[in-house]
Structures are given as structure tokens and as C-alpha cells.
Write a protein that binds this DNA or RNA. Structure first.
Lengths: 197, 197
DNA sequence: ACAATTATGGCACGCCGTGACGAATTGTAG
DNA sequence: CTACAATTCGTCACGGCGTGCCATAATTGT
């Protein structure tokens, strides 16, 4: 979003980028601690003022959710490309696993980010709106397949439970060192589709 | 907890009770609005100081979760009373529906509370630790039935997805006027146990 | 009376998030 | 070259939350 310099030529140049602040904040959160880090600290390390930080991010916690929000868009696109003959729960599983394929370079950052989200109460609290958007992407797909509206019981439940299963998978991935994320996701979603029988 | 006057005889008597502050706060949140209400307002309406409010509740949002936390204890007790021959997912469904049987008198307050939790972002954010405790109660039961540890993938997923389904049911109950809460819960948990097939 | 106990009130502080306003830095038109 | 428009930044101020700290009030037991 910020990268596109098409049209934006005039005006004072940015002192930094959202991505740069994100890296700095992620480092401080994981080394110093989230509560122990003030927004002033992040801004100073980024060479900008505290007020400018809040122009790049809505809150101290919002830094962690940039990549996650991107995944929601990827999720919707992947759902659009699913063939109609694939069963619903199977399609959901394939799409989720596909979207969660990260390169080896992104793994360390993903790991620290998920570890923070899973361990810091203030960050867990900030998850709600982002989780909602993710669930909604699944619910919309389930609505099409079931022929019901997205805000009715079954599509809603499918969206919510799918994320719930994925969160359990992510939690296992963080705890069990050296394990494969997609394996956990696949196992959790298979269990969900089988009704945990 | 506060009611037991066993041993606590000496000392200055309390100026109010947690329950009284809860009723006042619930009223202000639903009429004036959560963001528009300050802790100072609640304290003043309760005849105490702002500082005293924070001795009764950890945060402005914690007021809403008192009853919910009680349900977690009821959940655990109900799981202990389940017969061993009842299938796991069926047992979970029965227990959840049983615990969510409220009297007609409690319905209005439950409704306003759940409506607030479902509509105010700051309250959704405050849900995480309470949801975790609820999920954990289910995971512990699933751990016994599956013979696995409670913090492994399947029990974790069962706890998380069960709450996710219940949240979808609650949301429907709030939206659809005059509907029965236990019906939604039963339907959502049956769908979960069937793998949404 | 006096001590012990328990709850309260007031004060101060750090931090978060937001609004307002002027200054800084660039490109563009005249 | 100069005036102007556009965009970002920094500073200041404010309200609100949550938390120590300590003095004070209210009650019971000795």
C-alpha cells in the first residue's frame, strides 16, 4: 500500500516505512518485552517521533498483525480458485494449508511473531478484529457451499471453528521445536472435518 | 467469594459489593455506551472512589466477565458427573447445553451482557483470558477421553472449536429475537460433531 | 482506652491514543 | 527564481486507564 509511488511525488518524504518500524518493534518486543517497551522507544529507534508511529499503526499491538491481515486477502483469493467438485471441508483444509506455506526466510520472523501473540496477554487481546476478518473469509466460502447466508449459524460456526483448529495447530508448532506447520494444520483440520470421532 | 463472612469480622465494612458495581456498570455500558462511560462515572454512581473500583475489578472491562468465569467452574463440575459410556462429543454437547440453562429472570441481563461483548471492540479484546479458561475446561475433559495430554493438538483443538461453535450459537441467539439459546447451542455442537458434513 | 484489622480516599505517576496546529520538505506552475 | 500546493513530520496538550503509596476511617477484640 505504502510502496506505490505512483502519483505521490510531491510533499515531504517519509522518514521511515511501516515495515522498518515493524522490524524494530518486533525485535524490541521479543528481547526487551512488550510491556517493557514503550512506543517512544520504538519511535526513537526508528528515528521518528511518537506521534508518527501512530500515523503508521493504530496501536502499539497493531504492528504484529500486518502480515496476518495480508493472509486474509490471500485466503479469499485461494477460495475463489477452488474447483466446485471438491468437498467443502476438504477445500477449506487445502486452502488454509496452501496459504500457510512460508519460505524458510520468513520462518524465524513468523515464529517470533506467533510466539509473542501466544504468550503476551495484551497481544492476545488485540487479536479479535483480525481473527474476525479471517473467520469471515471462511464463512463466506461456507455460505456459498451450503447455500445459506454467511451470518447464519452453520457458516458462522464453520468459520469460527476452522480458525480455532488452526490456532491449536499453530500453538503446537510453536511448542514442538522443528515441527512442520503445515502438518499440524492438516491434522487439525482433518480432525475437525471428521467431527473428532 | 466475598459473601463468606467466615473469619472476616473485624475491620471497616465494605462500602459496596462487586455485584452492585456490576449492575451499575452494565446499565451505564448499555445505555450511555462503553467508551463513553468512565470508571469515574461508575464509581460515583456506586458511591465509592475510582481507586476502590479497581480494588473490586482488575479493569473497566473485567466487570462483564464475572458470570462467565463462574460458568467455567460449573463446566468442570458437570464434566466430572458424565457417565463413561457416553461418547465424547455427545458428552460435551450435553454438558455445554446443561450449563447454559438460565432462568427467565437472568435472561435480560445475560442478553445485554452478551450483546455488549459481541458489539464493543474493547470488550471483545478483553475476552481472551476468559475464553482460554473455558476452552481449557473442555480440553481437560477431551484429554481424559482421548488418553492424550491436554496441551496436545487434538484436545486443544476440541476445546477451541467447541467454544468457537458456542460463540456462533450465542451470536445467533442475540440476533434472532425470541429464539432459544439452548437450541442454537445444540445445533452448533451437533454440526461440529458431524464434521459439518 | 487502645491495639489490631480491614477497607477506603486521595495523590501522583507513566503510558496510551487522539486532536490541533505550525514547520519542514518536495514538486510544479507562473 | 519565486510563489504555491501537497504531503509528512514534530510538538504540545488533553483525557483516560491502571497502579503504587500512604494516610485515614470504621469496626472488632482485649
Amino acid at each position: 500500500m505504502q510502496d506505490e509511488q505512483g502519483g505521490r511525488s510531491r510533499g515531504r518524504p517519509r522518514g521511515t516505512s511501516a515495515r522498518a518500524l515493524e522490524v524494530i518493534a518486533l525485535d524490541l518486543y521479543s528481547t526487551v518485552g512488550f510491556e517493557e517497551t514503550t512506543v517512544e522507544d520504538i519511535a526513537a529507534a526508528g528515528g521518528v517521533s511518537r506521534r508518527t508511529f501512530f500515523r503508521y499503526f493504530d496501536s502499539k499491538a497493531a504492528v504484529l498483525w500486518n502480515e496476518f491481515d495480508n493472509e486474509v486477502a490471500a485466503l479469499r483469493e485461494a477460495f475463489d480458485d477452488v474447483a466446485d467438485n471438491v468437498p467443502m471441508m476438504e477445500a477449506i483444509r487445502h486452502v488454509v494449508v496452501l496459504v500457510n506455506r512460508y519460505t524458510a526466510d520468513d520462518m524465524p520472523e513468523l515464529r517470533t511473531r506467533m510466539h509473542l501473540i501466544g504468550s503476551v496477554p495484551a497481544l492476545q487481546a488485540s487479536a479479535a478484529p483480525h481473527y474476525d476478518a479471517w473467520e469471515r473469509a471462511v464463512s463466506d466460502f461456507a455460505a456459498i457451499r451450503t447455500g445459506q447466508l454467511a451470518d447464519t449459524l452453520i457458516p458462522l460456526a464453520i468459520g469460527r471453528t476452522t480458525l480455532a483448529a488452526c490456532r491449536a495447530a499453530y500453538e503446537q508448532w510453536i511448542v514442538i521445536d522443528g515441527s512442520d506447520l503445515t502438518d499440524h494444520l492438516d491434522a487439525a483440520l482433518r480432525a475437525l472435518a471428521s467431527g473428532f470421532a
